[in-house]
């Protein structure tokens, strides 16, 4: 990072871990963070519910709040069928949330900032929605691509548009999460680099170093913003998955 250029995207580079073994199976820090996230969520939930007190302590109350939040969300959007999809939505939401938040720790890596990961998650939801809609609606699923009440003569124009609109769902779902995370992390590293550039500039360490406090102050505010964005994006991803599934169940 030192010097006159800002290497804003170098932080998203993947490095193989664990020497030759990691190199041969392509195990990078992204996979490591995913495994940490996957282990962390059940461990935290189990630890939080260990005492099962009627009057919960803070840890248990936080766990129950998380559970109830996703439970309410899936039931209010999906109706009674939401109970079946709740485990899926819960793991989706907390996998993304934990990934976003783990990425904010120093020396860690935000795996949600890679479009491969977000596209995979979005395709998971998309394919699942298709399977669910075939199960619930059968071949009437295809009737959705023709808007009701439209004249049949318009079908050659309307049907492709509807199909494209349907196909654009996983794209927008994944780009939104990915773009938010990349933008946040690039901004963080830009302001961190400003501090170093100021300190090593012609102003000298005394003045430049002092001025470098301001980018750091801004970075603290940005971390707060990133906490908000991380939660919001996980929420948006989960709620949109719920809405797609609701449409798949519908009628």
């Amino acid at each position: 990072m030192a010097g006159q250029t800002i290497d804003a995207l170098g932080q998203f580079k993947l490095h193989p871990l664990f020497g030759e073994f990691g190199k041969s199976i392509g195990f990078s820090q992204s996979e490591l963070m995913m495994i940490i996230a996957t282990v962390l969520i059940p461990v935290l939930v189990c630890l939080g519910m260990r005492r099962k007190a009627i009057v919960p302590d803070r840890f248990q109350a936080a766990t129950e709040m998380c559970y109830e939040f996703v439970h309410d969300m899936s039931l209010s959007t999906l109706g009674p069928a939401g109970k079946g999809f709740f485990p899926f939505i819960f793991s989706l939401f907390f996998f993304i949330l934990t990934g976003n938040y783990l990425g904010l720790l120093p020396f860690s890596f935000a795996f949600t900032s890679h479009i491969v990961v977000t596209v995979t998650l979005a395709l998971l939801v998309f394919i699942m929605a298709i399977i669910v809609s075939f199960k619930y609606q059968g071949l009437k699923f295809f009737a959705h691509f023709m808007p009701e009440g439209a004249p049949v003569a318009m079908a050659p124009l309307l049907v492709p548009i509807e199909i494209l609109s349907y196909l654009s769902r996983p794209v927008s779902l994944s780009i939104r999460l990915f773009a938010n995370m990349v933008a946040g992390h690039v901004m963080l590293i830009m302001f961190a680099a400003f501090t170093i550039m100021l300190a090593s500039s012609f102003l000298g360490v005394a003045i430049g170093g002092f001025l470098g406090i301001f980018p750091i102050a801004l970075n603290i505010a940005l971390i707060a913003l990133e906490l908000l964005v991380g939660a919001l994006q996980a929420y948006v991803f989960a709620i949109l998955s719920c809405m797609y599934l609701r449409e798949a169940i519908g009628h």
């Binding site: 654009s168 927008s172 773009a179």
Partner: peptide
């Protein structure tokens, strides 16, 4: 994002 993804 929706506008862009449809086009993409």
């Amino acid at each position: 994002v929706e506008l862009f993804s449809g086009f993409a």
